[in-house]
């Protein structure tokens, strides 16, 4: 059984979280640069220019890209042949999150659902982290991380379609969600679509779809073609960068599909704002 020290896990996760708040990853930068070059609306182009300048400045001065430094969301795959010594994996991730958000001067954004008081003093600074665990073969710990802002979560939606609605139904639902969202989720956005499974599996898949490198091909050729078809339709909506009107509303559509019940067709749409802050480490 391979062993990883608790302190080492905390150190690695903390470094990743701090870096992600100030450095936009290359895939997001490339997608934004391409949108800037191709955008036809002058107003939207000037917005895209500001977004790119912001990314440059944030990295240079190590300032948070956005004041909404998000909730910390993790997808963690733990190998059956690896063990963390000196504490639990969950504690290590929460500890790393708290330290990174505090020391990086990031915002604590977790609060009570009803009275809305900030939980930084009783639960922890920006805690709890949102962690999705999976057990896999091997002796590694694989961690995907995203700082997920509230504006784009607020427009995300899930439903269960009738099987007869099929692909057309999925496409129409995605279009409806993005059209209703308009300027609110800080376009140009990335659209994660989770299809199939049960209600919650679709939702989780739509979140995980956002972790893929923006614009990378879907390994399933049928889904790859479907992503491109939806992308083209969404960019006809005319919403544009920050909703000012334009041709580049969506940078990429990413789909994850799961087997589902014979009676159901669950679909979830999770939206990612243009500040697509995500990272991936393997220990």
């Amino acid at each position: 059984m391979r062993e990883i020290k608790y302190e080492d896990l905390v150190k690695s996760v903390k470094a990743m979280v701090m870096h992600t708040a100030t450095h936009l990853p290359q895939d997001a930068l490339n997608a934004l640069k391409k949108a800037y070059e191709e955008e036809e609306s002058e107003v939207a182009k000037s917005v895209l220019k500001q977004i790119l300048e912001n990314a440059e400045l944030a990295a240079k001065e190590e300032r948070p890209l956005c004041q909404d430094t998000g909730l910390a969301v993790y997808f963690v795959k733990v190998g059956e042949d690896v063990k963390v010594v000196g504490g639990s994996i969950k504690d290590a991730i929460n500890e790393a999150t708290e330290h990174a958000y505090k020391e990086g001067y990031l915002r604590a954004s977790t609060c009570d659902c009803f009275d809305r008081h900030n939980l930084k003093d009783e639960v922890g600074y920006n805690l709890p982290a949102v962690i999705h665990f999976d057990i896999v073969k091997g002796d590694k710990i694989d961690i995907e991380y995203a700082a997920k802002g509230g504006g784009s979560e607020n427009v995300s939606r899930a439903t269960v379609l009738a099987p007869a609605q099929g692909k057309e139904g999925v496409k129409n639902f995605v279009k409806e969600v993005i059209s209703n969202a308009g300027p609110n989720p800080c376009p140009p956005i990335i659209v994660g679509v989770g299809i199939g499974g049960t209600f919650e599996v679709a939702a989780k898949s739509s979140k995980h779809a956002l972790f893929r490198e923006a614009g990378s091909p879907n390994p399933d050729p049928e889904l790859d073609a479907f992503e491109k078809e939806i992308l083209e339709e969404l960019n006809k909506l005319g919403i544009g960068a920050m909703g000012m009107g334009g041709t580049k509303t969506v940078l990429a559509v990413h789909i994850e599909k799961n087997p589902c019940h014979i009676a159901s067709l669950p679909v979830s749409v999770n939206v990612q704002c243009h500040s697509s802050r995500h990272a991936h480490i393997t220990l």
Binding site: Q50, E53, N54, A58, R63, P64, G151, C186, M242, H274
Partner: peptide, 13 residues
């Protein structure tokens, strides 16, 4: 007025 969302570092200047 609209300001550019996600340009928090730039605006702070």
């Amino acid at each position: 007025f609209g300001a550019t969302g996600g340009a928090g570092a730039l605006i702070a200047k």
